[in-house]
Structure formats: structure tokens, C-alpha cells
Write a protein that binds this DNA or RNA. Structure first.
Lengths: 138, 138
DNA sequence: CCTTGACCTGGAGCGCGCACCAGGTAGTTC
DNA sequence: GAACTACCTGGTGCGCGCTCCAGGTCAAGG
């Protein structure tokens, strides 16, 4: 399963309502539901009235998802990664491969951005004489 | 036929044909025209038959555009930046401001990616025992 | 003369990742 | 008991940044 569930018994008061989840993760309600519908977040608990209840594990998992998304992993890749998680330990090698591949991609992104900084600094050199009005608004 | 086009014959006056521009910049024909139509690339020369002719300056400028785009500057911001350039020296302070702002954004991106590396490495720790089949083909 | 190929223009189409909306239910508040 | 709030489901819409397409021009080659 995707979300680590340490025990079968979960202390009820540690579960978060959707609104609390939004606060904790910074992810919107719509996006949380979207991720769940796409299989990125499985086994979300429900209250008696059908409302979702998120665990601390869900919070951590959403943070992982956002980290990967924000560094350029596509929904499709993320879905694949989650599917592998759902399929059990036999997929661990491939999950490791995916993480390693993404890791090197992130390193490339850092390199690309370092080069960008150099280019920007080069252009900024042409503005060395320009004083920026610190009082300027907006 | 995939026979290499006779690019050995460099176009006169060191101006580049659209196809040559694609080779030099890695940007597609459609995108080059799109950028021009959006005002990111002005005053592109034309041959007698109406075909575009790009200068070495155009090549350098496209590289700047791609650098900024690839680090998250939106088309709208890029358009604004180019408009300022077209308006002359009076806009230099704002152009500098934009570059500085984007510079700090890129630095934030690097920081975010460093944190991503930490998180990925943390997860990779759980796979320390996993051997990846190096022979695996794909 | 006919074909081929590079390029032209204007406009439509598209994939992604959400964001928004309508219509409904369950629990609390006055 | 009426309103209000929080949430539900299923579906549609949308902004961005290209990407593709139809239909045409022009020049060179066989």
C-alpha cells in the first residue's frame, strides 16, 4: 500500500479532516481528491458520514508527492511509482531505479539552474551602472 | 530521403535559414515562429523570397529566452521583458529589477531541489539492501 | 513542364494538471 | 425547522505553451 499504516488500529483523534489536510499540506481540496482518484493516495479513511479522514502518514506521503511533482515528475510517472508500491515488495528494485533516475534528473536541474545563474549574472553585468529605486512600489 | 542537406554551403552574409536556426538552437520551427509572433524576437530579417533569415544575435537571444523559460519565467513575463527592451534605455532599471527577481527565483529553485535530493536520499535509504540489475536492458 | 522541397500564413488542436461547478447529504446552530 | 457549514460525487472548463495542419508561394532539378 502507498501510505504506511503502522498498525491496524488508528487512534481516531489523530485523523485530519479535509480542511485540516489543506492547512497541513498546502494542497487544495480539489487536488487532494484528484490525487486520490488518480491512485496516488489510496486507502484514505472515511468517517461514519462518508467524509474523508487523513492520517499523519497521508500528510507525509502528500509531501513526498509534492516534492516529486515540484521537481518535474509527471502524473503518469508518479502513478506508476504508486502502482508499484501497491504491488508489494517484489517491485522494490524498480522503485529504487525510479528514485535514482529522478535523483539524477534533479541534479541535472540544479546544474541547468546554475548555468542560468551564470547567464543572468552575465546580463546583469550590463546593468552594473543602474541604480534601482528602492522606494519603488510593487 | 534522409540525405543530409547541403549545409556545407553556408548561407551568404552569415545569416541562418530557419532549418539552420533549428539546428543551432534546438528550438523547433513552430516555436521560433510562435516566439516571433509573441514579440519575443523582433526584427527578424527576410530573404527576397520572404523566408526568414536569422542572425547570430538571434541565436544568442533565443538562448537567453530558453534559459529564462526553462527556469520558469512565463511567456507573459518574458513578453514584458522584451517589450521593455524595445522601449529603450529608459526601461533599464526595470529590466534589471526583473533579472534580479528572476535570479532569486532560480536560487529558490536550487534550494527546493536540494531539499528534494535530501528527501529522495532519505527514501533511498530504505532501499539500501536492493541490488539493481545493471544488466537490465531497456 | 512537372515535381520536389523549403518555407510562408493563419488558425485549430492538444496534453497536462489542476480548478470550478451543480446538485445533494449529514450534522450543528438559532 | 430553517439556515448554515462542511463535505460528497461526477462532470466540465481552462490557461499555458506549444504543435500540427491546410493551402499556398517560390526556386531549383530532371
Amino acid at each position: 500500500m502507498v501510505t504506511p499504516t503502522p498498525t491496524s488500529a488508528v487512534s481516531a483523534d489523530s485523523l485530519l479532516t479535509p480542511a485540516e489536510m489543506v492547512d497541513r499540506t498546502g494542497v487544495t481540496l480539489d487536488t487532494l481528491r484528484y490525487y486520490e482518484s488518480e491512485g496516488l493516495l489510496s486507502d484514505v479513511a472515511r468517517a461514519a458520514n462518508g467524509h474523508r479522514r487523513y492520517s499523519e502518514g497521508d500528510v507525509r506521503w502528500i509531501n513526498v508527492l509534492r516534492c516529486l511533482r515540484d521537481t518535474g515528475m509527471s502524473m503518469a510517472q508518479l502513478r506508476h511509482y504508486c502502482d508499484l508500491g501497491d504491488q508489494g515488495a517484489v517491485t522494490r528494485p524498480e522503485r529504487k531505479r525510479i528514485l535514482l533516475a529522478h535523483r539524477s534528473l534533479v541534479e541535472q536541474q540544479i546544474e541547468e539552474r546554475r548555468r542560468a545563474l551564470d547567464l543572468i549574472d552575465g546580463k546583469l553585468g550590463a546593468y552594473a551602472d543602474v541604480e534601482i529605486d528602492v522606494e519603488e512600489r510593487s
